[in-house]
Design a protein around this nucleic acid. Sequence first.
DNA 1: ATGGTCGCGCAGCGA
Length: 272
Amino acid sequence: MRIATWNVNSIRSRVDRVEAWLHRSDVDVLAIQETKAREDQFPYQRFTDLGYEVAHHGLNQWNGVAILSRVGLDDIAIGFDGDPGFGDPVAPEARSIGATCGGVRIWSLYVPNGRALGDPHMDYKLAWLEQLRQRAGDWAADGTPLALCGDWNVAPQDEDVWSMEYFVDKTHVSPPERAAFNAFLDDGFVDVARPYTPGPGTYTYWDYQQLAFPKRRGMRIDFVLGSAGLTERVSGAAIDREERKGKGASDHAPVIVGLDGDDGAAAERVTT
DNA sequence: ATGGTCGCGCAGCGA
């Protein structure tokens, strides 16, 4: 079994690339973030035609999360939007969806962007992460393998950004954000891709601006955090940096995790 | 190539 997470930055503008990527990557479950689509705008048919079941949670043209699965898609749950304490400071946003796929509990998560240190959105981000952590403990309690997949908008280690000097007084690396992320690790969740994709320089996101990708100015902010029951089954992982290349790429690369002997290796890609 | 972002939706904001 092979799972993956990918912030696609609009499913409508990325559907051809996602479809082609699924074709060559042999992924059983894909957690998608930033679909930027309402329910009526999501291209369900394109993925059902490929043999995937689809669960999508989208409220507007921002954010939005989905899970594609060809190994079953059950017990779909929407996270947070309507819960006390989770009101976005500006507007309700679709940031989490969960489902059980092939016996693994998958969550697709789009952690709020704090925008700036001291901004109310940063308080919201930290509160959101803490609430997620509390729930994740509940979800993992029965021993079902749990994968928290998504764009965490946190670079937990110095090597996860291209320059710590650049990130002085910026978001994603601040102590409170790192503490919020590390609290998951303290609870026993494991960043399962990292041992197979050691840094430095193994990023998952590169800004569209300033030629960040060719200059290798990236960040590692997309993670699969596994419960103990998932982590013991992980047998490989990869970041498909090739997918960031070329016209029409998302600003994020997919992160692939293989289970039960699958090496998770990104598919060979014919480049031109 | 002596510059240099996308995507939303159609102005300007968010990432």
